[in-house]
Each structure stands twice: as structure tokens, then as C-alpha cells.
Design a protein around this nucleic acid. Structure first.
Lengths: 366, 366
DNA sequence: ATAACAAATGACATCGATGTCAATAATATT
DNA sequence: AATATTATTGACATCGATGTCATTTGTTAT
């Protein structure tokens, strides 16, 4: 069916425009029985065709498919779920306080769910909440879902994992710290990316490179710090603990860390923050101190979030394959849920360094 | 049940830790019949209690409730949906290209859904897509939902509204342009807020105030422009068309508009952008041109989005009651769906001007 | 052509909650 | 106290799809 796709004009004839057709109002949705009748087979056979069971003669199958087509039949998911106790629903658990990735995660998940006929429930929780474990337990008691996708930093919450284990619920984790076989997982190569970024800064002539870490319960944060150290040691630059400050991915923590770094007697000529948020905070602090960017301070971030393109100078950062991670984890989960052949591989995805104007040659260097 | 809520320690005894208990694995969920048996009544009576029907003796009700409690019974939503063809699911339609509000909308909706026992499906669409109408039509054909919440700029898409009308689906709209009775709606008082913001700038001594409009299909955009004009005319400042530039809420459009405004022979001393995104773009352009902020240019935004606090100087902006709008629209929708007494009022919520450092006294003024 | 077997199909019960309508218990009426 | 009336309760069928198992059809071997 093709509908007028024009947008609203200035004069609002909207209501009238909508009065025109009321065709479909009383049209009931076709059921399995309608299809069976039309195709002159039993309901069970229709069911067989829908579920792609073998042992249906090609001719019958064709007849059934034709009937389905003409009646525009779509299975009633409630009846189906009631019968075989499968919900065709998965849920995304995320931490409500770090919404940075969430929209991208959702997009990646939706794309796969769509093609697999699944629906997605979104479920924000606060990892700092005292009642998190109980809340999730209650929620699982009430809700019927086939599986969960868990995003950082919830991936390694012991209480949560325990509940899932007890309830025997399938789940996959995105970038978990713990890489054991508790569940399938996917992750991005944060360590290599952080190393590459640090090397980029070193190549620009920076040696005193400040580093602001992320949330210590977040796998990405841990890996990024490792990558930073990797690059330094590969370039034979001694590690200086005064150049490493513990943040938690929040803007506020970034401000504090940046201030500490820049207030030192010999401040670093470059700062690499573990996410764009803290990099933006660093930029704010630098500006407050009157530094000219990027000449007097190079700043690098991680995430390639929206903000990285909206700052001036635009932020050199790392693009993470968030949608891919989400899509892949969804595939893994759905394959599990449907008892399809299970791939063993826990997938790794590569990140990409995006060079923009916030990093430049070290002018302080002799 | 209370679980250990501690986070993962350094040494990973996670797997072992989880081995401990496997209590609940085989525990089947209780059904209506289990409850009926336990309470020594018929299943139908249990159903009556659950659905809060009248004409159940207080004593029986108590017995049933006790049984429900001890068995930890939760109704099977699939059976229920199958029987009374109600999904207990609503969907949020939003434009995938303007994700700014989306997370806040989701939070507001989830909060209400939770208490009402509804679930929410999220459904991103691209309003510029040629196939939008057909896509949504197909989706509605496949999916069983009780109602829709439509967020801008989808609220006034004629094709979409037509489909909903034909299918006779309940929906509410958030900040629609069209305020007719097609559906219930909620909206925020953008006009008054934009007026207040403009007055704030005027009070700081600004007269040449640039304005960057938002997406022309977005009600908020239209209202904000009206508010700007209201304030000027109230202050007897003549309207200068050269000071009004047509943006579309995107960062890029903000850059273009800001450049046009600032390249004029006599540039404005303040710029009021219709959202924070474009205000950030304005800040970027101003900085590229070497302007000192806020002394040489005051900048105001709209949304109080995350970015407004992450820029330097922090952005003076307008806080919108997005969560409230979402929560209220959800209530309206669920009341409709459940055939509860329908409130007639389409709710208005007030915005709030947040003054930060990006606006200051006009120094150019004689 | 017929028995023996496998493949394809169908009849029926079932998942769990609720609408319909009949049966029973409680209360009001005389 | 007996009957009329109303308030509670229960028996049964139903929503739509699918598992189980019996039946029919088709195929192969003799």
C-alpha cells in the first residue's frame, strides 16, 4: 500500500484528510485456521510450513504459502508464546548513568531483532544502586524474556550474574572484564586502539602524555590503560605515575583529573582521556587556564561520540564499533535461544583512530 | 531474596562463586490453577481477584491474595493477551536522526510503564525516509501493540497519521504542531520559554540578537521563534529578518547559520539558537573567528542537554520537562488503552531558563 | 500386484487466563 | 419461616498455535 508521504502543509486540512478512508477498521486478522481452510489442509500442516519443519510435500507447502500470502497472515505471537513458552523477546540491560553508548547499542540490537522476528525490551538500572540485584530478580520474576544482553559496566556485577545463573537465563555480555565461559561475549580491541592513539601522540613529538582512566569496573577502561602503557614502553618512554589520573568516565571526574594534571609543575604537553566526555572536560579546563588549543595542549579522547565533532578544535578520538558489537551479541543470543548451532568464537571487533584537530605537533619540544 | 551485592574483586573467583546454588532451576512458575487449588476456590475467582472485579467477598479475596503471595504467582501475560487480545505493550516512535531527547523520553515512559505493568517497544524511524509510511504500516501489521507514543518530528507526518487512523490504533503525541483532536497530546511551553530567554538577553543590554530556528516541521521550533518575536516586540525592538536564520536542529546547520550571522557587516552581540546543538555549533564558529566568549558574543541554547554543561563557557539554556512529558503521555495512553475515565485536558508543562556563563552583559553597547 | 515400510498429514489435547452463563449462597421482603 | 432478590461463585468454552500420536498416502521391494 502506498500512502501520501507529504508533510503537513500550512493550512491544516489534516483532520479532513484523515476522514477519507475507514476501510480496514473491522478487518480481523487471519488465523492459522483461516489459512488451513483456504489451503485445504489441516491447521497442523500450516503450522509445519510456518516453522519450516521438514516432511511437508513441496506442493502442499506452496499451497499453504499462497494462502498465507493472500490472507496476509501473521502468526499470533501470544498464542505461540503461550504454547511453546518462548517469548521472542530479549532485553537490553544498561546502566542508566552512562547513556553514551545506549542509543547506538539499541540501534544495533534492533537491526538484528527486526530480521529475526524478535522484540527488544530496554531496561535501565543504576549499577550503584543498593537494590540492583533484588530489583533485577523481581523484574525477571515478573517478565518473561528469552535472554539478556548486558552492557558495561553491568557485565561483571556478581549479584546480577548470580541471579541469572540461578534462574538459568541465557545472556551475552558486551566487553566484559571477566572473560570466562559464564556466557558468550563480544568485545572491541580497546587495548590496541589505545596503543595506536598513544603512538599517534608520540609520533607528534609528545613524551609527557597525561592519561585519564575510566571507570575501574569497566573493561574498556582497564584495557585502554594497558594500551597506553604498551605504547610508552614500546617507545622506551618511562612510565610516570603522576601522569596517570583515575577518572570514572564522567565529565566531572575528567575536570578534576585534568586540573590535577595541568596544575603540575611540569604539565604534560598532551592528555589522552579514556573517553570523549572526559576529553571534553579536559578541553574545558585547558580553556579556563587560558591555554591555546591544540598548540599548547594536545587532547585525545575515546568513543567518537557526537561531542567529539562539536568541540573546537574537533577531537582526535577512537571510533568504537558499538553497533557491530550490539548486532553481533544479539545474533549470538538469538542463536542460543533458538538452539541453533552455537558458534564458539567470542568475537573481537577492531576500533579505529580518528585524527582531528585537537592533537598537533608538540611545540614545547626542544 | 537478598544477594551479595559486592562487585567483582581483583581475583576472579567468579565462576566458582556462581557454582554454589542451583536451587531455582527446576522451579516452575505457578499458574492460576495452582493458586485456585491453594485458596480452595475456582480459577475464575482467582481471575476476578487479579482483575480487581467487584463482587468478590472480602474473605475470599484475602484467601486468594494469600495464596498468590505464598506461591509467588505472576500472571502469564501471553495467556492473558491471547484471551483478551490486549498486548500490554506500547511503542515509542521516534526519529532516529534526532536522538537528543530519546533517552530522556525512554526514562519517562519506562517509569510509568513499570508501575502499570506495561512494556515498551522502541521503534526508530527516519522521517526523511521515502518508505516511512509503508514501513510503519508493515510493522503494525506484524506487531501487536495497544498504543503508540509519537515524538517530534513524527507527530505531524500525514502518512503516519493516516495509517494509524485506518488501523484504528490509539496514540498520543508529544509536542505536535497540529493541536486538533486527532489524538491526546502533551506539550511544553516553548513559546513562553523562548520569550523569557530573549528577555534575559535584552536585560543584559543586547538588542541585535541573532536567532537560529530549528527544524520547520518541529513544533518546538515554530513556537520558539514565536517566543523570540514576542519578546522583541514587547521590548519595542524592531524585527530584523537578517538576524533570523533557518536551521534544522543539526550541528551542521548551526554552523552555517552562525557563520552567516557573524559574517554580517554589523554582527549581532548575542545569538539565541533553538537548541543546544546549534548553540554549540555557534560557539565553535565564534571560536574559529577568534571571538572571546562570552564578552564578544553571548550565546544561548535550548534543551539543557548534556553538552550545555560540557562546553566552556557553560551554556545558558532552557530546561525542558522531557521526562514529565513522556511520563504524562504514557499515562494518557494507558488510560485510553484500559478504557479508564478519559481526561480531556491536553497537558502543558513549563520550561525553565537556566542561566550559565555563556551569556553576559553587552560590552559593545554605548 | 501386494506386502512392507517410510513419508506426509490430520485429530485432538494443551498452554494459562478470562468471558458467558448457570448454580449456589447470602440477604432482604413479606 | 418461606419466598424473592441479589451477591458470589463455578463449570465450561474459548483465544491461536503446536506437541503427541494415530492415520493416511506414497514408495520400494518382492
Amino acid at each position: 500500500m502506498a500512502f501520501a508521504n507529504k508533510m503537513l502543509n500550512n493550512d491544516l486540512s489534516l483532520w479532513n484528510c484523515l476522514e477519507q478512508s475507514e476501510l480496514r477498521i473491522s478487518m480481523k486478522k487471519a488465523t492459522l485456521y483461516d489459512v488451513a481452510e483456504k489451503a485445504k489442509v489441516s491447521p497442523k500442516t500450516v503450522s509445519r510450513v510456518i516453522n519450516k519443519e521438514s516432511s511437508v510435500r513441496e506442493k502442499t507447502r506452496a499451497a499453504v504459502l499462497a494462502a498465507i500470502e493472500t490472507l496476509n497472515y501473521h502468526p499470533n505471537s501470544y498464542a505461540r508464546s503461550l504454547r511453546n513458552s518462548r517469548a521472542y523477546v530479549i532485553a537490553l540491560l544498561y546502566d542508566s548513568r552512562s547513556p553514551v553508548y545506549v542509543l547506538d547499542l539499541q540501534i544495533g540490537i534492533i537491526s538484528v531483532c527486526e530480521s529475526e522476528g524478535f522484540n527488544i525490551l530496554i531496561q535501565p538500572y543504576d549499577i550503584a544502586s543498593e537494590t540492583l540485584t533484588d530489583d533485577i530478580d523481581d523484574w525477571l520474576e515478573r517478565t518473561r524474556i528469552d535472554g539478556l544482553i548486558i552492557s558495561p559496566p553491568l557485565t561483571d556485577h556478581v549479584g546480577l550474574l548470580q541471579v541469572l545463573k540461578e534462574r538459568n537465563i541465557q545472556f551475552v555480555r558486551i566487553s566484559p572484564i571477566d572473560k570466562s565461559d559464564i556466557s558468550p561475549y563480544v568485545y572491541s580491541n580497546d587495548r590496541a586502539a589505545a596503543k595506536a592513539m598513544t603512538e599517534h601522540l608520540i609520533a607528534l613529538g609528545h613524551e609527557a602524555i597525561g592519561f585519564i582512566t575510566g571507570h575501574p569496573e569497566h573493561n574498556g577502561a582497564i584495557e585502554r590503560l594497558k594500551g597506553y602503557k604498551d605504547a610508552l614502553s614500546a617507545a622506551n618512554i618511562p612510565l610516570d605515575d603522576n601522569l596517570i589520573k583515575q577518572g570514572d568516565f564522567s565529565f566531572e571526574s575528567g575536570e578534576i583529573c585534568a586540573r590535577e594534571l595541568l596544575n603540575q609543575a611540569v604539565p604534560p604537553s598532551a592528555i589522552f582521556a579514556s573517553n570523549d566526555n572526559m576529553a571534553a572536560a579536559t578541553m574545558k579546563v585547558a580553556r579556563q587556564k587560558g591555554l591555546v588549543l591544540p598548540d599548547e595542549l594536545s587532547i585525545a579522547g575515546f568513543d567518537d561520540s557526537r561531542i567529539s565533532r562539536q568541540l573546537w578544535p574537533p577531537l582526535t578520538t577512537v571510533q568504537q564499533p558499538i553497533k557491530e558489537l550490539a548486532a553481533r551479541s544479539t545474533e549470538l543470543l538469538i542463536n542460543r535461544v533458538l538452539n541453533r548451532a552455537v558458534e564458539k568464537t567470542n568475537k573481537v571487533f577492531d576500533c579505529k583512530v580518528i585524527t582531528r584537530e585537537s592533537t598537533s605537533v608538540n611545540t614545547k619540544k626542544s
